[in-house]
Amino acid sequence: MNNFSPCPSDADAAALARTGYVVLRGVAQPTAVAEIEADLSDRFEATPFCEGGFYGARTKRFGRLLIRSPRMAELVMNPAVLALAQDALGPWCDRIQLNLTQAIEIHPGALAQFPHRDQDMWRGAVGEIEYLVNVMWPLTRFTCDNGATKIWPDSHGADALSAETGAEPVVAEADPGDAIVFLGSTLHGAGANASAGVRRGIIVSYCLGWLKPYENQWLAYPPEIARDFAPELAAMVGYAQHRPNLGNFEGQCPSVLFGGYPDEPLAAIDTLRPDQSAMLAEFVATQTARADGERGQ
């Protein structure tokens, strides 16, 4: 029986807002996830272990996943996940953007990761807005024994200001094809791997479009690579302006570089929100009428 379900329910969105996390079951094709794992296997093998207590001395990590597997775009642009991310982040930005794609391999003997909130990388106001939505995609089965992600329910939003963690953590056991979705304000961390096998997964995260993303997307996917992406994916990795005019190249959308660096100077073109356009139009009309009146005197 195929349980693939491309859309979240209202209950999923409510659960994410209420508890800070939700596990979406069967929102990606397991065959696609298996192909991605196969595409990444050589890179997993070649990648050295991380250095530092946060990343984990028995853990391997690498990014730029959109160039490492042709099916990776399916996870980044998964409609169920994007709907949740847009719902959670949309009130505070004009558009969301890709923050990170990272493959993670946790080896036997790995210690539990330091519990943390990913929003803290920006040092903005806490408890007022959401900055980030994380999605953990299992490549291998996530279990309590092999280091499945631990999530502290109800530790998000304004509760992120509390020094107390409250409830005990939930072990997010999941299978390939499932998506573990949690907010950037939610306390979480990888579990210890007490099994005899590796635990492989992928993090895809989305942040407010006006933030500096964790992974430098323009270096990860320069114009000569991103121009071959679907337009929606190219926009997600940064080849679109966040109104008003943020992230432009010479006053235009950076996607202009898909045709190569221009030989001639470009004209800067306004890219404004509707409310700003309306205020600007009123201001210009007033100034024009005043100028016309002065000329008529």
Rank of each mutant, 00 (worst) to 15 (best):
L161E: 11
P169N: 04
D275K: 06
A158N: 05
F4S: 09
Y214T: 15
L89R: 02
P223M: 08
L280C: 01
H188N: 05
G209W: 03
P262H: 12
N245I: 01
G296V: 02
A289C: 00
G189N: 08
Q97D: 00
M1G: 13
V133I: 07
D42L: 10
T101S: 14
Y239R: 12
N2K: 10
V256A: 11
L208T: 01
T165G: 07
G247P: 13
G26R: 02
Y131T: 15
A289G: 00
I202L: 02
L280W: 04
F62W: 10
E215N: 00
L98K: 06
Q97W: 06
E128I: 15
V170C: 03
L211K: 00
C7S: 03
Q287W: 00
E51G: 05
A240V: 11
C50N: 12
H242G: 12
F114I: 15
E232K: 10
F114A: 12
Q97P: 02
D263T: 11
A15D: 12
L187I: 04
F54H: 07
L66F: 09
E173A: 14
R68G: 13
A110E: 03
E128L: 12
R68L: 15
R18H: 08
A110R: 03
T149R: 05
I67W: 06
E45N: 03
S255H: 03
Q119L: 06
G293V: 03
L211Y: 04
G296K: 14
A73C: 12
A226Q: 10
W137F: 10
A160W: 07
L208K: 06
D154Y: 13
K212N: 06
N216M: 09
E264N: 06
V237T: 14
V23M: 10
A11N: 06
R18D: 11
